[in-house]
Lab assay of single mutants.
Amino acid sequence: KKKPLTQEQLEDARRLKAIYEKKKNELGLSQESVADKMGMGQSGVGALFNGINALNAYNAALLAKILKVSVEEFSP
């Protein structure tokens, strides 16, 4: 059984999803295209955005690059 995410991890996910929602049209992104760039399925990206799975440093760095932001913008 997976450990529930901490409040901090949930807040990171909320900020990440908000940045994605704000930038997806400008950058021409969908959850599917983000998933392709990350080498995972769309459901995996959804789980990161919705605070189901915790972000690790690798995925955080990859998402920051895809969204053209710094990791600190969603994970201070």
Rank of each mutant, 00 (worst) to 15 (best):
V69W: 01
N56G: 05
S33E: 15
T6S: 13
A13L: 01
K24C: 07
S43C: 10
A61C: 11
E72Y: 10
P4L: 13
S70E: 14
E73D: 15
S43W: 05
E32F: 05
D36P: 02
E26C: 08
K3D: 12
S33W: 09
I66Y: 03
K37G: 08
K65S: 10
K65H: 10
A60I: 00
V69G: 06
N56I: 01
L10K: 14
A47N: 14
G46F: 14
V34D: 03
K3T: 12
S33H: 13
K24W: 00
A54N: 07
S70C: 05
A35C: 07
G28F: 06
I52R: 13
K1C: 09
E8I: 03
R15E: 00
V71Q: 07
S43G: 13
S70K: 15
A60D: 02
G39H: 10
G46S: 15
E21Y: 09
L67C: 03
F49L: 14
I52H: 13
L10A: 10
L29Y: 01
D36A: 15
L48Y: 06
S70L: 00
M40A: 06
G39Y: 04
I52Q: 14
I66F: 04
A13Q: 06
L16F: 03
V69C: 14
N56R: 05
K1H: 06
K1Q: 07
I66N: 10
I66K: 10
I52V: 13
K24D: 03
E8T: 06
L16Q: 05
N56E: 07
E26G: 08
I52P: 03
A13T: 01
Q31E: 13
M38W: 02
K1N: 15
D12K: 07
K3M: 14
A47W: 01
K17E: 01
N59L: 07
S33V: 14
A60R: 04
N25D: 15
L63K: 04
G28K: 11
A13Y: 00
L10S: 08
Q42H: 12
E72V: 10
G39E: 09
L55W: 00
L63H: 05
L29V: 06
D12G: 06
S75K: 03
Q9K: 04
P76A: 02
A35G: 10
S75Y: 04
R15Y: 01
P4N: 15
N56W: 03
L55R: 02
E8M: 08
N25H: 13
G51K: 01
Q9G: 06
N50M: 05
V71M: 05
G44K: 14
N25I: 13
E21I: 09
N53E: 15
K2N: 14
S43R: 12
F74W: 01
G28R: 10
L62K: 15
N25A: 13
G41W: 05
G39W: 01
V71S: 06
E11H: 10
G39C: 06
L55H: 02
G51T: 00
R15A: 02
E72L: 08
E11G: 05
N59Y: 08
G39S: 09
G28Q: 09
Y20Q: 02
G44I: 07
E8Y: 01
G41Q: 15
N50D: 12
K65P: 06
S30Y: 00
A57T: 12
K2A: 09
V71E: 08
D36Y: 11
Y20A: 02
L67N: 11
V71T: 08
Y58K: 15
K2S: 12
L29K: 02
N56K: 05
M40C: 11
M40I: 14
A54R: 05
N59Q: 14
I52W: 09
E32R: 13
K65N: 11
Q7M: 13
A54M: 07
A57C: 12
N53V: 15
K2R: 13
Y58E: 15
L10Q: 12
A13E: 07
D12I: 10
S30K: 05
S43I: 11
K68P: 07
Y58W: 12
T6N: 11
I66Q: 08
Q42S: 15
G46N: 15
G28M: 09
